[in-house]
């Protein structure tokens, strides 16, 4: 078995008196999708912020390729190949696709003080990178990012991370704001990134999305890893229950079924 690209060993995190993460040990491997599951406030975002250099662990170690590392800031993390894509793509809505793709590393032509931004090349590379991920609807690098759909923006951000050499791709609820079709797009891209040998950390509340792409699952409950298992080791119901922190979801489902049985098959009306 290969060494994990990134590993957390006994990581704790507290904000002043508030303990948010307890003794987290996790590994992410090349070509594998690790799904981080857990209820609101379980500590998922905090955990990935430690992986991406936004927060420092209060104690514990971070390893990359088996070597202890510190990630003092997001720059350091991204230089080591850790890329984070946030819910809304984290890109610049009023910039063109080509320009936002190359923010900070703008391609130029010409020489000396007369270097000019190479719009054609930037657009061509950006469009090709996204299309290689199967998003063929993006074919004009001059379009503004804010005009893309949520799924397309996510795809652009992921394609950008991969293009610039990311090895660990962290996705914080990339499908949360998306419809079914858009979410499918993003999941396909996650699969594509995995095929290219990236390690993907995927946060989601939707068990279906997790099961569609996940190889490995970790459930966080109040800041601790409550379960850590491989694909196929647990059913959807079991995972859902774990996420909800016990048997509450199963009993809720039973409750709804009971309601429907006694009301001629109608689900309960949502509160007005």
């Amino acid at each position: 078995m290969t060494a994990p690209i990134m590993a957390l060993r006994g990581v704790n995190k507290s904000f002043g008196p508030i303990d948010v993460l307890h003794d987290i040990t996790l590994e992410v491997r090349a070509g594998e999708v690790l799904c981080l599951l857990g209820d609101n406030g379980a500590g998922k975002s905090t955990l990935i912020k430690i992986m991406s250099g936004v927060f420092q662990p209060s104690s514990g170690a971070i390893e990359m390729d088996g070597v202890n590392v510190t990630l003092p800031n997001p720059r350091a993390a991204s230089e080591k190949g850790v890329a984070t894509v946030h819910q809304f793509g984290g890109t610049f809505p009023l910039m063109s696709i080509g320009r936002s793709f190359f923010v900070g590393v703008e391609p130029a032509k010409g020489w000396g003080p007369f270097k000019v931004y190479d719009r054609k090349r930037a657009n061509a590379i950006a469009v090709k990178a996204v299309q290689d991920f199967g998003i063929t609807r993006i074919d004009d690098g001059d379009r503004l990012v804010g005009g893309l759909s949520g799924g397309e923006r996510q795809s652009l951000a992921i394609a950008r991370a991969v293009h610039f050499g990311a090895r660990v791709l962290i996705l914080d609820e990339p499908t949360a704001a998306l419809g079914v079709k858009q979410a499918t797009h993003v999941l396909r891209i996650v699969n594509e990134a995995k095929k290219r040998g990236l390690a993907v950390v995927f946060i989601t509340h939707q068990v279906m999305h997790a099961m569609a792409v996940g190889d490995h699952f970790a459930v966080l409950i109040r800041g601790a890893v409550a379960a850590d298992f491989k694909k196929g080791e647990k059913t959807r119901e079991e995972i859902t229950d774990l996420m909800a922190g016990g048997a509450s979801m199963a009993s809720l489902e039973a409750e709804i079924e009971g309601y429907m049985a006694s009301h001629g098959g109608h689900p309960p009306q949502p509160a007005e």
């Binding site: 997001p74 720059r75 991204s78 984290g90 890109t91 610049f92 809505p93 009023l94 910039m95 320009r99 936002s100 190359f102 923010v103 900070g104 590393v105 703008e106 391609p107 130029a108 270097k115 000019v116 931004y117």
Partner: peptide, 27 residues
């Protein structure tokens, strides 16, 4: 020239669009 043609102009727009992302992108 500097804002619209040189590569640096992009940084100003990126900064106004999303400062945190711009910083993380190395600007």
């Amino acid at each position: 020239f500097f804002v619209h043609f040189s590569p640096f102009g992009n940084w100003i727009f990126a900064m106004g669009g999303d400062k945190v992302s711009a910083r993380n992108a190395g600007i």
